[in-house]
């Protein structure tokens, strides 16, 4: 009763793997977009802002379908990748990573942008006069002073990925052991006769995994605050 079956363990492991990779995949592009939106002055900034936020307002299925058209095996980019490098995202766990990354992208950018806006540009200016190159200013002043944004953004993206359903099932499919993450597994069980009890176990498991993630993030945040005091 209290131990996980090998199948349940595999589902949790897959979900965690997808969520962690989703956060990793997002760090650089999200930071770049957030920096452009927080500090940049350029033509088309409003358009970029709107594009970044699009996944928040579109139905996930629409995005999943768009990904299929773009990156599917017969897609514009996906077809090319498959013929030249034999890379395929559909029915592969990387597809689940990409689907949840697209959904989580705006959340991460928002958190990072907010944090970047709180970094005093006068401190960056001071660093510049002390001989720091723009890259050094970013890594020694801007980034350390906006760590909490990276942490918040990371947690949001991680949680979004754990809960992602629509885009994943449309783009990556619902393949056991490959793309069937916790929400997809719960959905599949509810569609199966006599699957209710097993679904309920996974629901409880979802709650526990999310709770653990939140507790770890709180602990990280406390450590970070201590180190910056």
């Amino acid at each position: 009763m209290w131990t996980l079956t090998p199948a349940e363990l595999a589902i949790v492991q897959l979900s965690l793997k997808v969520a962690v990779c989703c956060v990793m995949l997002l760090i650089v592009p999200a930071m770049l977009s957030a920096w452009l939106l927080a500090r940049g002055h350029f033509w088309g900034k409003s358009l970029l802002d709107a594009l970044v936020h699009l996944p928040m307002v579109l139905p996930p299925v629409v995005l999943g379908y768009a990904l299929l058209v773009l990156l599917g095996r017969k897609g514009v980019l996906g077809g090319w990748l498959y013929t030249h490098f034999h890379v395929q995202f559909t029915f592969h766990w990387w597809g689940a990573v990409i689907a949840s990354a697209v959904m989580a992208f705006p959340l991460m950018v928002r958190a990072l942008r907010q944090a970047l806006l709180q970094v005093d540009p006068l401190l960056e200016q001071a660093a510049q006069t002390l001989g720091a190159s723009p890259l050094k200013v970013f890594f020694t002043i801007t980034l350390p002073l906006s760590y909490h944004g990276l942490l918040t953004g990371g947690i949001l993206a991680f949680s979004r990925s754990l809960g992602e359903f629509g885009a994943t099932i449309t783009f990556a499919g619902n393949l056991e052991g490959e793309t069937r993450t916790l929400p997809l597994a719960i959905y599949s069980l509810t569609q199966t006769p006599e699957g209710d009890a097993a679904a309920l176990r996974l629901v409880v498991l979802s709650v526990l995994v999310s709770l653990a993630a939140l507790l770890i993030s709180q602990w990280l945040e406390r450590g970070l605050q201590r180190s910056q005091r």
């Binding site: 006068l122 401190l123 200016q125 001071a126 660093a127 510049q128 006069t129 002390l130 001989g131 720091a132 190159s133 723009p134 020694t140 002043i141 350390p144 002073l145 910056q228």
Partner: peptide, 30 residues
């Protein structure tokens, strides 16, 4: 600005809040 080697002391100090005094002092040390 970062190539000119100008020591600029600002009105409000502008010390880096996440670094201690030693790290602040050494920040611009080439």
């Amino acid at each position: 600005a970062n190539k000119r080697r100008v020591g600029l002391v600002f009105q409000e100090g502008r010390l880096f809040p996440h670094l201690n005094v030693m790290q602040n002092l050494r920040y611009g040390l080439p």
